[in-house]
Design a protein around this nucleic acid. Structure first.
Lengths: 341, 341
DNA sequence: CGAATTCTGATGTACGTAAATCAAAAATTT
DNA sequence: AAATTTTTGATTTACGTACATCAGAATTCG
């Protein structure tokens, strides 16, 4: 049988009230007594029954998800997953609130973060925009005692407790190798379509991609990056122009969102050309393109896993518990047409 | 505020005792009364607080994992993950017992399954050997009211509640495409190293592999399958012989365990040849081989995820609850040297 | 040394559910 | 209608923890 507070009291030779004072950091316990109790806790290997404690406390976990506006499929999916989590809130004692902020807008994000200060929150999850002032705002939030996890895009150098997202440098490297190997020694140009170089995850993907390309596939030349701002229309235009302007393009890496535009360009301008294409994010569009051969591989991060992981980590952090590391590693999914879910 | 049993009682106009009788299927309630209570439960949207119920019941989940003996790395890893789960047992109210059975031995497996019959178990997880008598034994266990999940290798056609493992046909297909694409149009022979064609997961991987190879890479010819029984020594011999005997082998797919032997053969006999190699299961050996270029891709299933998923599903099934489908899908991991964890 | 202060113990209630007991009220049978 | 059986209600205890209150003990201070 697992030891209880009564066992602590007996082992330490004190009353239940004193055990409670120690366990819950309430005042009015002499140092010697506290140490006696803490020793007993260690000796008998007591671990608080979180379920019982939460029941007694009537505890709920008020969580906030700060998500950027934006109408690409990935963000839609992310919203959907958070809403899914909200439907399970009674079940796991969470109270989830979504806060929308304009994308790529550090001041707006900082304002929202600061607005959360005084509130009694068990955790804040945010899709970080990479800027010093955001970093500072996150650090303020952490300093005020609120668990903070970054979602999808990290904020290195900040004091955030956890990052629930993929390793984007590794993602870029993987894309490079897939593209390079799939091209099997052919010589030619590679076009990269990004959303914006202002976002860390896009920058990191490009960084990983470029380094492997340079080191291992010298016969492939990278063309200047196209920035489509995750917008289908812009992407369509940029890719169409690029393809029309050059016959030596044999591969495309799309590391951002808004792939509908890319796909349209491929269907129209890319007609009849032999292009190897690797893109990010599995959506209904990219899934179809993968199946019909327009795309050769899709790299993906599972938004559902990211959201659930973020919630688990925030709850655990709020309770001072630790998590199962392997469970919280967000993996890079690689989809070919054969292993689609 | 979430409704409680008191709210049901008030809404249905009955006493708490009657509500309890209905909720816990205790006798002594007239049909009309029961229906009245059930209606109230639906109306106010009551959902039992499982944590509180478990506390009151002092409930634990006695679980059994039936695992095959075998000294390959994957099985070691699987054992390790189950033991990891055991260390968390006080925390999640499980009581896990490991039962070892000889690998590829249906009668032994059946005996163990039948021995579990009368016991009060919240669930049984087994690495299924694919045989009719095993199927029947699993069905008996399910019929006796025990939740059963298959782990790593499925038992289709049985009444098992869930399968915690990857889609092995998809895995084989994926391997074929990776190998085919990485070979970039070269013409030659492909050797397949399996453990045993008596195991369903190996058969399925081969099936998926062969079908994609035949359909999409006609320039590649499949040599007869080598059965290494997941044993490093046998695998080494078989692969060495195959490589020595033919200069037209340009690709290898190892779909089973025991890759140490394969790697040794590659280091020795495969020296200086340009081979493209895809294997299953990420171990310390395959990791190194991936990094040094001996292997081109590793397909993997995360044993930790499989074990944790199996536990979640068994608990939920025992409680008659449902699970988050997306969370319990075991994904096929594809590792290149760039995205190793 | 007595008074003021700090610490500790004893006890009760609560969280939401399970489970048991016994009495009272219905429904059913004779 | 009485006797019997079946349903229902009322109440209590328990699970492991949190939290509050008040009295009594130990300690510290003047």
């Amino acid at each position: 049988m697992r030891p209880t507070v009564y066992d602590i009291a007996a082992a330490a030779g004190v009353s239940l009230a004193t055990v409670d004072r120690v366990l819950n950091r309430r005042p009015g316990v002499r140092l010697v007594t506290r140490e006696k109790v803490e020793a007993a806790i260690r000796d008998i290997g007591y671990v608080r029954d979180v379920a019982a404690a939460n029941l007694a406390k009537g505890r709920v976990y008020p969580l906030v998800f700060i998500l950027p506006t934006g109408d690409n499929s990935f963000m839609h999916g992310l919203y959907g997953e958070v809403r899914q989590a909200m439907t399970r809130s009674t079940f796991d004692r969470t109270e989830i609130r979504i806060v929308e902020v304009p994308a790529f807008d550090p001041p707006a994000l900082v304002a929202e973060l600061d607005a959360l200060q005084g509130q009694e929150l068990a955790g804040v999850a945010l899709v970080a925009t990479d800027a010093p002032e955001v970093r500072a705002a996150v650090d303020r939030l952490v300093a005020s005692g609120i668990p903070v996890v970054t979602l999808v895009s990290d904020l290195t150098g900040s004091t955030r407790h956890h990052y629930a997202g993929v390793d984007n440098i590794a993602a870029g490297r993987t894309a490079a190798r897939l593209l390079g190997r799939f091209l099997g020694g052919r010589k030619g140009d590679i076009t990269v379509l990004a959303g914006s170089m202002l976002v860390r995850d896009h920058r990191e993907r490009l960084e990983g991609f470029s380094s492997v390309m340079a080191a291992e596939f010298p016969q492939l030349r990278l063309l200047p990056v196209l920035e489509g701002r995750d917008d289908p229309e812009i992407a369509n235009t940029l890719v169409s122009e690029a393809l029309s302007g050059s016959n030596s393009i044999i591969g495309i890496y799309s590391l951002g969102a808004g792939n509908r535009g890319l796909l349209r360009a491929l269907k129209e301008t890319g007609q009849g050309r032999e292009l190897t294409v690797v893109v990010h994010e599995l959506t209904e569009h990219t899934r179809i393109a993968l199946l019909d051969g327009t795309i050769d591989a899709v790299l993906n991060q599972d938004a559902g896993h990211e959201v659930r992981s973020a919630i688990r980590v925030m709850k655990a952090t709020a309770d001072g518990q630790d998590v199962i590391a392997g469970q919280e590693r967000i993996r890079l999914d690689i989809f070919l047409k054969d292993n689609l879910p």
